[in-house]
Amino acid sequence: MIFSLAIYAAPYTSQASDSAYRFALALLENGHTLYRVFFYQDGVHTASSLNTPPQDEIHFTHNWQALAQQHNIDLIVCIAAALKRGLLNKQEASRYDKPAFNLAEGFEISGLGQLVDAAVISDRLITFGG
């Protein structure tokens, strides 16, 4: 079965962020496909390359990067939600004349259309947070 996840929750603030990651692991272990993870609302903070949790805590950014690389998963960050929260890639930083960008490698900034596309392509779209 093809799954996609929509994550609205910020990392570390609510359990939903961790539950989403664990759900992803479980579905992959059970032989399903994870087509896309769409980060919306505060979920976009997951994609910051500047996230620096203490060493004995979960590193969500690294975890998603590793999982995406291993299983060829789309990690999409909603552009409208990202820009207003200060999460920019190189292109957007230059467009808005900002001194830095912080989108972590493996994540991609795109529009809400990618959420609809995930709903259409996937058999199941599961929302975490909100």
């Binding site: 609302q41 409208a80 809400l112 259309g113 959420l115 609809v116 259409v120």
Partner: peptide, 19 residues
């Protein structure tokens, strides 16, 4: 919270996709 506005934005964006 931003949930209501984010829902509306998602609905309006989706309208372009013929679903």
């Amino acid at each position: 919270t931003s949930l209501a506005k984010d829902a509306l934005d998602a609905v309006l964006s989706s309208s372009a996709y013929d679903q």
